[in-house]
């Protein structure tokens, strides 16, 4: 893809957690957002993090080929939205990329929505690719379930969240990660009230839903217990290939899988 040199892209990054060990790392979806930003703006991509500037995991993003990152100093249980909103409102960013949800903390996935609401910018959910930017209007592809894509047109500036359909993040190199600069800024802190009333606990595996048989009589219960899982479908024997093809075609048509 051609780098859109003139496009000013900001990628919001967070500290993730390894799914098995729980150790801090670069967050999977945020790394994909950075990858997409690198494709669009190259070295001019601006990385932004709100949180602790001392966190070593943030260097994982710098190791993807960026020299510096801005960190808005925030304590652990703070509402980072006002700080991010006022910072981004003051810059001339045209595209803000985020992952779709955080890997630690609440992880509600609300940040891109609230940020778009606060800045009054449009929001693209599940950005997969930016096809072109012309005259302040971007043509983008949105990822849908089952690998499908939808083409959207949106005017700049806008917020976009990426999910696992975005291009896979490149590896992080150790040397550049250590040489990169974390530029920290002091900003106002707003306390997040939710975490005082909510409680976190280790996730329990959810119980499997049982098949409930609502039979009123013994005969019905017996029938339900002895019935085969499925009765089987239509079997067409002794037919010409054309008739068979016609039957399959009718089913494909009915299921709307022929495009």
């Amino acid at each position: 893809m051609m780098p859109h040199e003139l496009l000013k892209v900001v990628a919001l990054v967070s500290v993730g957690a390894h799914p098995v060990t729980g150790r801090p790392r670069r967050a999977e979806q945020d790394a994909r957002a950075v990858e997409l930003g690198l494709c669009l703006a190259g070295k001019h991509l601006h990385l932004l993090h709100a949180g602790d500037a001392e966190s070593e995991a943030l260097r994982g993003y710098l190791g993807m080929g960026l020299a510096e990152m801005t960190v808005l100093q925030q304590p652990l249980h703070a509402d980072i939205l006002p700080a991010l909103g006022s910072y981004l409102g003051a810059t001339d960013a045209q595209l803000v990329l985020t992952g779709s949800q955080a890997e630690i903390g609440e992880g509600s996935g609300m940040l891109p929505y609230l940020l778009a609401e606060q800045l009054d910018w449009p929001l693209v959910v599940g950005l997969a690719e930016v096809e072109s930017v012309k005259g302040g209007v971007a043509q983008v592809l949105q990822a849908l379930p089952r690998g499908q894509r939808r083409r959207l047109q949106v005017r700049l500036p806008f917020v976009a969240s990426v999910d696992s359909a975005a291009p896979k993040a490149r590896q992080s190199a150790f040397g550049p990660a250590q040489r990169g600069q974390l530029q920290s800024q002091k900003v106002a802190v707003v306390e997040d009230m939710l975490l005082s009333e909510a409680s976190m606990q280790t996730a329990r595996p959810r119980p499997k839903r049982l098949k409930v048989i609502k039979a009123k009589t013994g005969a019905e219960r017996m029938r339900a217990a002895t019935a085969k899982a499925s009765a089987g479908g239509k079997v067409l024997t002794d037919i010409t290939p054309e008739q068979g093809a016609e039957a399959i075609f009718a089913l494909l048509k009915e299921e709307k899988v022929l495009r």
Partner: peptide
Amino acid sequence: GRAGAGQQDMART
């Protein structure tokens, strides 16, 4: 509800 990357649950009103 599930929180974070699915390793934790969050209970709240």
